[in-house]
Write a protein that binds this DNA or RNA. Structure first.
Lengths: 196, 196
DNA sequence: TACGACATGTAATCTGTTACATGATTGA
DNA sequence: TCAATCATGTAACAGATTACATGTCGTA
């Protein structure tokens, strides 16, 4: 019962509410995309597979003449989800072009230009902070889940938790870069003074 | 002159020293793999392509009967590398299964089990810290680049910089998790006391 | 009536890893 | 002599994105 990458988000979201493939994609793009993306090209085929395996159950529920299939999680699906969550192993992958540039920045002659590489990296993370702040603002003003019983359940704390992690993380990176830039500038000033 | 993902590491390493494909792979696995991996299946074809484009220049230099082709960066290659590094845009991708588990941990009934999910995430990052500490230890004791002229150049500071970032980052995540676990446990204790 | 959101699906493409094939050299 | 390392290369596969095709519905 190994779950693939897409199955994990699908079962996760379906454990909260019944959704169509389209709905799932909306929620992914609004939340997990920052650390776990999923495209239509993965979602729709996987919904079929998961239904065949009996982890989810689909029901046709067209809106007028517009075809729509809403899926709900089954007991077997819940078991699979819980067993994945409770498994202590998990992968972490970081692919960071800014770090790669810093790593090779010795190839740049001018010290000011090398500092600029760090500053550019900081800027990328500032943008991420802004994006996440926008997400946070949206969450507090207009909750994405609008069903009344959903708002009533106040115990859905974990997504906010993860959002906080994202904000804290990107802010930390910005500060790290700024600290290192400052100490680099100080070191350089000393060298400059020595030469004068 | 858009560089693809593998071209970036190749040009970066060749800007320091002349290397074979095998050498490049060794260096990637020893350093950038934590944020920028590359496999033989990418490296060898790309070396050919970069030579055709004139960004690198290969020379056959067999060791005895063992075939070997060593590449050096050209002036055009240096220009391409510098222009990529100085470009302010860069991608950041994080794929974090632990965060995904935390995100969906509301599906787990027991509060203790939910805390365990956070603890497991912390553990993954502790392992990363250990791995990076091993890398750091290797660097200070036996520098990977052993050519004397290389050791003499003391101005290759950026790789150590990036290593420091990795260590600081993973330690920060561990502390973040521990802080949140503690505050979660305190909140729970209060609820428990209220019920009592 | 036209546009944007709703809704499903797939084919082409791209990127990257894994595994294998092949063979030489070095050192225990 | 045997295993590990040096060395190059490719085919098969896995994972994911992009772009397209198709059509409905609500609303400005």
């Amino acid at each position: 019962m190994e779950l693939n990458s897409v199955a994990k988000v699908i079962l996760g979201f379906l454990s909260r509410e019944n959704l169509s493939g389209y709905d799932i994609k909306l929620r992914v793009d609004d939340s997990t995309r920052f650390f776990w993306a999923a495209s239509y090209g993965q979602i729709y085929p996987e919904l079929k597979r998961l239904e065949e395996e009996g982890l989810i159950q689909g029901t046709d529920s067209p809106h007028g003449g517009r075809a729509r299939r809403v899926y709900g999680i089954t007991d077997r699906g819940r078991t699979a989800l819980a067993s994945w969550i409770m498994d202590t192993g998990s992968t972490v992958e970081l692919r960071h072009e800014g770090l790669l540039k810093v790593f090779f920045a010795d190839a740049i002659d001018s010290p000011e230009d090398r500092v600029a590489v760090l500053e550019a990296m900081a800027q990328v993370h500032r943008v991420q902070v802004e994006e996440l702040e926008a997400v946070a603002a949206r969450k507090t003003s207009v909750p994405i889940e609008c069903a009344p019983e959903t708002i009533a359940e106040g115990d859905r704390r974990m997504p906010a938790f993860v959002l906080k992690f994202g904000l804290d993380f990107h802010r930390w990176v910005v500060e790290w870069c700024e600290r290192e830039i400052e100490s680099a500038l100080k070191a350089e000033a000393k060298v400059g003074a020595g030469h004068a």
